[in-house]
Design a binder for these strands. Structure first.
Lengths: 220, 220
DNA sequence: TAGATTGTTAATCGATTAACAATC
DNA sequence: TAGATTGTTAATCGATTAACAATC
């Protein structure tokens, strides 16, 4: 990683967290080494792809041996930026925002993400505490972001408010948006957006269900 | 749609819901026709890609005119299976499951998805109502699925329980899983899984944030 | 009709897989 | 050492973009 990681394809980046998850599971089973071949069988990808992917970032393996699980786990964590402090805020303290604040899969020390505040306009929500995290008035957001040097914001607010608020957040220093609003955000190039478009993912599911049904009908 | 849609690439399928969203927005603005060129500018993709994608499913356009917005919206809806009844259950009535039950983006009549039951093992949750939907005992799930002919299940339960329960659900007739558990499900080919791996999507976000920082440091 | 824009074929680009020499 | 497995180059495959004849 560091300053020379150029032109890594998005396809590779998207696979890294999955490698990280499998390596974490191997580690938990006290498995200390693994070859690309064995990992490929567990993950149902080609060994070639694993080696190609990893070699974008460095030679983590050893000929005749394979990869050291613990080492590779740590290295991929570093590549993903999980060794850095990743404090985040959640903008929109409705059901989804609150669910994310409670979500244990990432909101724990082991992978370094920490939700430190929720924000909302609704006076009924302001002041309540969700999983030990307070809901603040959205008007206090600028000061909070600047004081705490927050770089990551989850957007769990209505579609019509998201673009305007995202623009403000970017101007206050937010560098990465985890966007749950069903809208495409247009922001400066220095800012990253990761979309989680739930309705859209559900639609691809129904497509697949129905197209499979049709294929079965025709005996394919 | 229909039985002859063969070998459509997943890349194309993933783009369909986004077309659908843009067409819905155009419709709401009372725009009745659009060319692939104009749509491409709005969506920031190439016009060529739009035409290629749509022509996998049929010639919806007209030379010299473009596409009729309303018609194309309806057709893509059909392709995605949104014209069919899409009743679903949510397995796991924790924070995330409850948030999904409340989620208005898809859980409304306009796109045909309907959450009709939540299930959980926790006696404290069983019997409560979330957004008008009751939390049932997970032991009643088999009967419920069979009686209501449910085809879609959202899995919002702990990682260690997901694979076993998914297998049971598949044996009871579930054809599509919307999987929020951070684990890969191994299921028969007749079953579709759409993964929403939140922790993993957050990791790709941090990768992008940090790699962009690095590039700025070196003035690239 | 003339102009616009599609549907579709061909060219390019990028990503995946295969192969194998290097080497632990 | 001999066997195993990587790192990396070359071959293949698939997806995207460009071009243009067809046609509304």
């Amino acid at each position: 990683m560091s300053s020379m990681d150029k032109n890594i394809s998005p396809a590779v980046i998207k696979r890294l967290p999955r490698y990280y998850r499998y390596l974490g599971a191997l580690k938990a089973k006290n498995i200390t080494r693994i070859s690309s071949k064995e990992l490929s069988e567990r993950m149902k990808v080609t060994a070639s792809q694993i080696r190609q992917d990893l070699n974008n970032f460095g030679g983590f393996g050893q000929q005749g041996y394979g990869y050291n699980v613990e080492n590779l786990y740590v290295e991929i964590g570093k590549i993903l930026g999980l060794d850095k402090s990743n404090q985040m805020i959640i903008v929109g303290a409705g059901n989804l925002g609150q669910a994310l604040a409670n979500y244990q899969d990432f909101n724990n020390n082991s992978i370094g993400f920490q939700v430190i505040a929720l924000f909302d306009v609704n006076p009924k929500l302001i002041g309540i505490t969700v999983h030990g995290v307070e809901v603040h008035d959205i008007d206090d957001m600028e000061e909070f972001i600047k004081n705490h040097e927050i770089k990551i914001a989850a957007l769990t607010l209505p579609q019509d408010q998201a673009p305007k608020i995202a623009k403000e957040l970017a101007s206050w220093g937010i560098k990465g948006f985890w966007n749950f609003a069903p809208v495409d955000l247009t922001l400066p190039d220095s800012v990253t957006v990761e979309n989680v478009h739930l309705a859209e993912s559900l639609m691809t599911l129904t497509y697949n269900i129905h197209s499979r049904e049709d294929n079965e009908d025709t005996g394919e």
